[in-house]
Amino acid sequence: MRAPIGDFDTATPAPDCLDELIAPVADAVRDWPGAVPAEQVLYVETDPRWADTAVFVEHYGRELLERSANCVVVAGKRGGATTLAACLVLSTTKVHVNGVVRRQLGARKASFASMDTATGETGMEYGGITPIGLPATWPLLVDPAVVDLPWVLVGSGRRRGKLLVPGKAFAHLPGAVLVEGLGA
């Protein structure tokens, strides 16, 4: 199948390649919750040498810069309690961690989670964290600009491979909350 965006050799419906996905992502695809059929979530094989955004778009298509989203893990702290959450914003923006995220989580302080926390809690590789397959108890804060795109490139849970997902699917993931001004 031809990918709807980017210059990829092939795009495979995620339910047809569960063995290529790490366990939490494969489980999420198996138990897909959304209004968008799971078959519309596409997996594309990519070379991890080109995982960094600037090199990635040079190799797989410059239009992907405007159609990619980053998923980052954040930690909100209040008193002795820490709340982990994920934020999904366009790759051309930055997450407003100490403003919008902190207020949304009701935290006194918010910051990006450490690499060990992000990978340990998600079961995903650093640089490949995806909103699909996150712990069900986490809030998933989504910038509405991501949902508005017809197709979005996101991580697959590993540095090798990406997912192409209809933007509206992100609004239906477990814990998803649309947050205006999340990315700027």
Rank of each mutant, 00 (worst) to 15 (best):
K162A: 10
S114A: 12
V177C: 02
M115G: 02
V101Y: 06
G79N: 05
R49S: 14
R67L: 15
G99P: 00
Y60K: 05
P33D: 13
L90V: 07
H172K: 01
R78Y: 03
V154K: 02
V152K: 05
G127N: 08
L173F: 01
R102G: 00
A107T: 00
S68V: 11
S156V: 11
T137C: 04
V57P: 12
F112T: 03
T117L: 07
A110S: 11
R158G: 09
V57Q: 11
G157I: 14
F170I: 04
R103I: 00
G99E: 14
V142G: 13
R2Q: 12
Y43N: 11
V179C: 01
V73M: 11
W151R: 10
C71R: 09
T130Q: 02
G76K: 01
K162M: 11
N98T: 14
T119I: 13
R103G: 00
D16I: 01
R108W: 01
V100N: 00
R2I: 15
A81D: 13
V142L: 10
R67F: 02
F8T: 10
Y126I: 02
P131R: 04
D9P: 01
T137I: 04
V36T: 15
A85N: 11
E121N: 00
A3H: 07
D148Q: 06
V146W: 08
L21V: 11
M115R: 08
D148Y: 03
G175Y: 13
A11K: 08
A51M: 09
E180T: 03
G155Y: 06
L182E: 00
G128K: 01
V72P: 03
A113D: 05
T117P: 05
T92E: 04
W50R: 12
P15C: 10
P150Q: 04
R67H: 12
I5T: 05
C17L: 09
L64K: 04
S91I: 02
G61T: 07
A85M: 10
P150S: 05
V142N: 12
K162E: 10
E180R: 09
V146S: 07
S114N: 01
G106P: 06
D47V: 14
V146I: 05
A38T: 13
F112A: 05
P48N: 08
L18V: 12
V100S: 03
D52N: 12
T10R: 14
R159I: 03
V100R: 13
L88V: 15
V41P: 14
A113W: 00
P48T: 02
A23M: 03
V97N: 14
A69K: 09
L64F: 06
G123K: 08
A14N: 10
T53I: 14
W138I: 09
H172Y: 13
D9I: 05
Q40Y: 02
V97L: 11
V89T: 15
S111L: 05
C71A: 11
P48G: 14
K109W: 15
A75P: 03
G155F: 05
F112V: 09
G175R: 02
W32E: 14
A176M: 02
D31W: 09
L164S: 06
V72A: 15
P37E: 13
R49C: 11
R78Q: 14
V165S: 14
F112C: 03
P166Q: 05
A85I: 10
